[in-house]
Every structure is written in structure tokens, then in C-alpha cells.
Amino acid sequence: MEENKNKPERKNQERRNFIKSGFAAAGLALTAAGLGKVLSGKEDSDTGEKINVLTTDGKVMEVDSGHIRKSETCCVSPSEARTGIPGKKWVMVIDLSRCKHALKCQHACQKYHHLSGMNVWLKVFRMQDAENTAPYWMPKPCMHCDKPPCVKVCPVSATYKRSDGIVLVDNQRCIGCRFCMAACPYSTRSFNWEEPQLLHETSGATYSPETGFPQKKGTVEKCDFCPDLLRQGKLPHCVTACPNGVFYMGDLNDDTVTNGDETVRFSQLMKDKSGYRLNDIIGTEPSVYYLPPVDRLFPFKDPVKEANIGKEE
């Protein structure tokens, strides 16, 4: 226990370095295969330039940039997207005590997924469980359930569960029956009711279920945990955009989650802060965990005032 308490602090520092050096080398990432090559160090030649990387067991190590392979930055094909990232089981933790409805997560999500119109993948709700209980903000992405009701009812396997826990939608196969929307107890799915207004840069892009764009008329879409970024070893847009570190993303197999600033043991975090899952009683087993809104970083403010504060910043 003692040891564990010190650990996050040290890791935190390491993590920052990692973000600065490793992530700054834009577009570079380790694939599992690439890591094997790095460790065996046989095939690639040295360049002399050193880069810090995070290994799967959470340690930072310095490697030569020549050993690092550029992963395909975009576009895993629809059939490849059906298998998850090997050895991973993604989980997200949302710390409600830190959310002040800044909506940076949502804006980043909308921007990077090129979402137009009213389709919002990440919604932030004002929650109040009962009249006499305190209100709080609750960001709600897709829960990526381990027993996903949406996947169960899809007649054509357009929405599917991967080995790494992510639930995706293939909009090249979706028939637009919207049964998944009916089945989802969390109402996280959106439908493209009309022809999506595609931005310049995305209109010509190759479609991949991992990026979700270009969107297509008459198909369902939803939060995808940014698997294209995870594949590159990066964190989802909402995690990096949040100024308050509300979102933690990580691998359950590793038992580590990080919000970009601090990396912590998932199990310890759950234990210390009484993590829970949304509507867990119905047995869908979400991959998103919440930390209750206690000892809050910010007092709760009503949306109108909050919106004005957002503008001042």
C-alpha cells in the first residue's frame, strides 16, 4: 500500500516526459510487432537520435528512433477493424468530481471526428438523481459494454464487439434499421438522418470503422474510443482535450489508466474512489467506469453562467 501511494507521483513525472518527447515525435508509434523488433534490435539500423517510449508494463525506456516503426496512421480496412488491438482490453474512467462542464472533450470529439449537424458522440449531462441530492455534470461516451445489447440485436453484424473491448459500427454494412438505437440502454447512438455535410479534408478520405468518417446517410454512428489513436499509442481526443483530467484511458490487462497527466493503477483507483458503472444493474457490463462526484474540484454552476465562463477563457 505504502509503495503504491508513492508510485503515481513518480509515474506522473515519467508520463509527462513520455508525452513531451514520445508523443511530440508526431505520428510515430509502436505497434506490438514493432516493439518486438525494437527489443530484438536486429533488423533496424541506428540513427543516433533517442526517443522515450512507454513499454507495455508501464516503464519508460529510451530507444533509438531508427528502431521505431511508423504505424499506418489511418485507415484500417473495415474487415481489419473487426479484430481488436492484440492483447488489449480498453477501459475508460470518468472522474465526476473533476468535471466542470467545460465541454472541451465534446468540442475536440466533434472536431476530430468531423461530426457535423446534431450528431454528438460525447454528451455531458446535468444530472440530479433526486430532488434533495446535489446536481453534477456527467460526460457520457459509448459504454463499450462487454455484453452489448446493440451488438446482440444488429441483424447484419454492422456493429460488433472486438477482442480489445471496443464496440464499433461499420457504416458500409449498416442497413439503418436503428434497432441498435432501440436496444442501447444508454442512448449513445446517433443516426445520419440526412446526407452528412462533409468537410473538405474528409470528403475524399478512405473510410474506416476506426475513424468513423466519412459519415454516410442512413447509417448509425457513435463514440468509438478513437481506436485509430489507440493503435498509434495515443490517447482519445476527449482525454487529451479535457483541461481537468476527467477522463482516464487505459488497458485493463495492464491495470493502468492515464488521463495524460497522471498514470494510476486502475484497480487501486476503483478501490480508493469507489468506482462504479452506469446502470450496472441491467448487466451490460460497461467498459466505462465513473468516480463519484465527491470532494469536487469545482462547485457546480448552472449552464448559463458556465457557458459565459467558457467564453471568457
Binding site: 441483424p155 447484419v156 454494412r173 449498416c174 447509417t219
Partner: peptide, 21 residues
């Protein structure tokens, strides 16, 4: 009611017996 009536054939190509549809 289908968003993509052009893909009706998917129900036969990729039909999943688990789905009530």
C-alpha cells in the same frame, strides 16, 4: 423505414440469427 434500403441484401449476406429482425 430503413435508412439504407439499397442494402437490404445485407440481411441475407451477413444475416445474424441472434437478431430478432
Amino acid at each position: 423505414d430503413m435508412g439504407r434500403p439499397d442494402r437490404v441484401v445485407n440481411m441475407f449476406l451477413h444475416g445474424r440469427i441472434q437478431s430478432p429482425i
